[in-house]
Design a protein around this nucleic acid. Structure first.
Length: 558
RNA sequence: GCGGGCGUAGUUCAAUGGUAGAACGGUAGCCUUCCAAGCUACACACGAGGGUUCGAUUCCCUCCGCCCGCUCCA
């Protein structure tokens, strides 16, 4: 899956993100925090542009969706009703032989005979730890407080290690010994033996792995929601959770939103916000984080129309990704099979992107039926039904939910945009690498950079600053006058700025050759007040009248 | 959570039981008429804590973080 080349690419992207201020590790000066990331000056612009565009597409360009911003903290009852409290904390058990982990509630009960074993590594004395410690200090000349071997306390190796195997009724100790041998061999135990006379029968036990009969470890609870306390006093009564998804507030407030927005079904509620999950294993840069941001739409439809809306939203969302620079060809549409779907789902599409570290989910589009409204109506005792004026009937709406990960999409955009080009200098023949982020202009953090060709020519600087000030209220622009012009172009390539605007001598002295401007208008010889417009992707340059810049740029970045 | 690998400027890499160098990058100045030019100066690192030692970036332990493979994933 993760080829060395892909790993190298990912490392470069991570380094670029830090170097140019897109993404930093959270709490970095304290050694970081697993699964949390900060967005720097450019990252926050990129992320904000992405969210703003989603928000605009949902709530401004459509008549059938309204916006919403729910709180992160909600009454604990919400999480009981939604099913999160019950299903978002899984007791897991580990097979002691294979180290594989299983959900404790999914272990198949089995019956048979249990053979306990005991193993020891020959103990050198009553207090082995002290002896080894003394030996170590004499031989190595360093003092130690505690020994570990692969995170196992050395001392524990001198304690008898218990193990047990279950075998079906009728099978003997031979098959149990086979498993036990594997167990003890893996741990370097030379001496182990069955506990004499201690075999016993078990009926429908879940303490052993059905696949191999090996004893399972103690169940451990994995809390996938982050627990917190509301109020200054920590008590059982004040427990709630940081929301693991933004969706629930929209379901819970369905009635209020409906009452105030004069909407009829089908209509949607859109929200962008943070969510929190205690991911067991955060990994792949920002991809799997414990704190992350979602863009969620709950689109409520008439009963029975969920499937067709599911397909409509699939198309809508694919088109949207194209508009932010992720081509359709790079998105894999996974029709989630029923056995893999969440229990409430009546149909789910996963939109997956080809990240360097593998094909991974960006967005899930789920037909949740009326599960959520049903749960909250029952739990709260408040009616959440919709009154259909046409048919004069009351019913619970079904919902189709396109739920996108903001951070994941930002990461996909960074991966998709990252490019390295080998450039050959025509004069010297030297080859060099150009790093460029080919962002779609509408989400680029900086839309255009304004450069005076030379900074020690006041007449160029004055015009450049003037253009900068003119454009600044209209769109995010940068001004740079340090270093040679080529270097300034490359710096801007590296952060994905689509346009460079250079004020040169032709700006004040008049154009030397007649040409066609970027807007298509002709530019005559001697025409003043034009500038060089340099394009990020092609590095091509053309001229454009200063007066045409605002309109031209706004068209290109909208 | 398990197994393996790793941790020295922003990046890539050195050196060392006596508190660290370079290149590129960055900042400032000079210079420069369109793609990382040149000159000068400056700033910036041993992930954290503990132990051994006269002295630790170096040896030992622990923790944290990153990468890879499992596992997990509403």
């Amino acid at each position: 899956m993760a080829e060395p080349v892909a790993v190298a690419k990912m490392d470069k992207i991570v380094a670029l993100c830090k170097r140019r201020g897109f993404i930093f590790q959270s709490s970095e000066i304290y050694g970081g925090l697993n699964g949390a990331w900060d967005y720097g000056p450019l990252g926050v612009e990129l992320k904000r542009n992405l969210k703003d565009y989603w928000w605009k597409c949902m709530t401004q360009l459509r008549d059938d969706i309204v916006g919403f911003d729910g709180s992160i903290l909600m009454n604990r009852a919400v999480w009981k009703a939604s099913g999160h409290e019950a299903t978002f904390s899984d007791p897991m058990v580990e097979c002691l032989l294979t180290k594989k982990r299983y959900r404790a509630d999914q272990i198949e009960p089995q019956s048979g005979t249990v053979f306990p074993f005991e193993g020891i590594i020959e103990a050198p004395g009553a207090d082995a730890h002290e002896e080894v410690k003394k030996l170590w200090e004499t031989e190595v000349g360093a003092s130690v407080t505690k020994f570990t071997v692969n995170s196992t306390s050395l001392l524990s190796l001198f304690k008898p290690l218990s193990f047990a195997v279950i075998v079906p009724e009728g099978k003997g100790i031979e098959s149990a010994t086979k498993i036990a041998r594997q167990f003890y061999d893996a741990r370097g135990y030379k001496n182990y033996k069955p506990v004499v006379g201690e075999k016993y029968s078990e009926l429908a036990t879940t303490k052993f792995n059905p696949e191999n009969g090996s004893m399972l470890g103690e169940p451990r609870v994995f809390n996938l929601m982050l627990k917190t306390y509301v109020g200054a006093v920590e008590s059982e009564d004040s427990i709630t959770y940081l929301r693991p998804e933004t969706a629930q507030a929209m379901f819970v407030q369905f009635k209020n939103v409906l009452d105030v927005s004069q909407k009829k079904l089908p209509f949607g509620i859109a929200q962008i916000g943070k969510a929190f999950r205690n991911e067991i294993n955060p990994r792949n840069f920002t991809f799997r984080s414990r704190e992350f941001e979602q863009m969620e739409l709950e689109f409520f439809v008439k009963p029975g129309t969920g499937p067709e809306w599911l397909d409509k939203w699939l198309e809508e969302r694919l088109a949207w990704y194209e508009q932010v620079g992720i081509p359709r060809a790079k998105i894999h549409i996974l029709t989630v099979p029923e056995k893999d779907r969440a229990f409430y789902s009546q149909g789910t599409y996963d939109l997956e992107y080809e990240f360097p570290f593998g094909i991974q989910e960006l967005e899930g589009i789920a037909h949740r039926g009326n599960y959520d409204l049903t749960q909250h109506q029952n739990a709260s005792g408040k009616p959440l039904e919709y009154f259909d004026e046409e048919t004069k009937t009351k019913y619970l709406a079904e919902v189709v939910e396109p739920s996108a990960g903001v951070d994941r999409t930002v990461l996909a955009i960074l991966c998709e945009g990252y490019d390295e080009e080998t450039i050959k200098d025509e004069e010297s023949g030297k080859e060099e690498t150009r790093v460029v982020l080919r962002f779609a202009p509408r989400i680029a953090p900086i839309k255009a950079a304004i450069f005076p060709l030379l900074k020690n020519k006041p007449e160029l600087v004055a015009i450049a600053k003037d253009i900068y000030k003119t454009l600044q209220p209209l769109l995010k622009v940068a001004y740079a006058d340090t270093a040679a012009i080529g270097r300034r172009y490359r710096r801007m390539d590296e952060v994905g700025t689509p346009f460079g605007i250079t004020i040169d001598f032709e700006t004040i002295e008049g154009t030397k050759e007649a040409c066609t401007s970027a807007t298509g208008k002709p530019i005559a010889v001697g025409e003043k007040d034009t500038v060089t417009l340099r394009h990020r992707d092609s590095m091509k340059q053309e001229r454009i009248a200063i007066a045409d810049l605002p309109a031209y740029l706004l068209t290109k970045v909208s």
